[in-house]
Amino acid sequence: MTERGAARRPDHLSAVPDAPPGPATDIGDLVRAVARGDEPAFARLYDLVSPRVYGLIRRVLRDPAQAEEVAQEVLVEVWRTAARFDAARGSATSWIFTIAHRRAVDRVRSEQASSDRTMKVGVASVETPYDEVVDEVAGRLERRQVRHCLDDLTELQRQAVTLAYYQGHSYREVAELLKTPLPTVKTRMRDGLIRLRDCLGVEVTS
């Protein structure tokens, strides 16, 4: 698989503009516009982030119907609280995914409280959603960096980070699942994230 598309461009299709069309679509700019009540800006923001917001929530909850419900809550929350986004504490993208992840985890925990999660997971895992198959192909390139960096962690770091992030487990549950003492799990979550941060080159300039 190569990026040959850009290399050889047939002449008849040269109606390509030098500058990209449409208004700016930096996610941070969009969130600032949304904070001023700009609904078209919100629609553009929706198109940019909703596949990852929905995908993340579905990954954690595993039930497409519930994921849709929680994704709606999250995206409306982004609209409602856009004015509270603080660029000094991180990127707009991260702000949005933090809201999404927390909501998904809250839902998982309240499901556990009502003790029907196992059943729901059992039902949901039978189907193979259509777009999951497509994503498998489409997402390969984008995933490569994250995958590569996850592979760079120790087994325990990787397990601790992914069980918490992708499955919504608390560090106590992770400790139980991995048969590892609590302080060790806390430490592996922290140093695992630090190693990921360095591998991905993440920076917050405040």
């Binding site: 596949p51 995914f97 959603p129 994503d135 995933r143 980070v161």
Partner: peptide, 8 residues
């Protein structure tokens, strides 16, 4: 980590 969770 959400980069890898894209879904339509």
């Amino acid at each position: 980590l959400a980069d890898s969770t894209w879904s339509v």
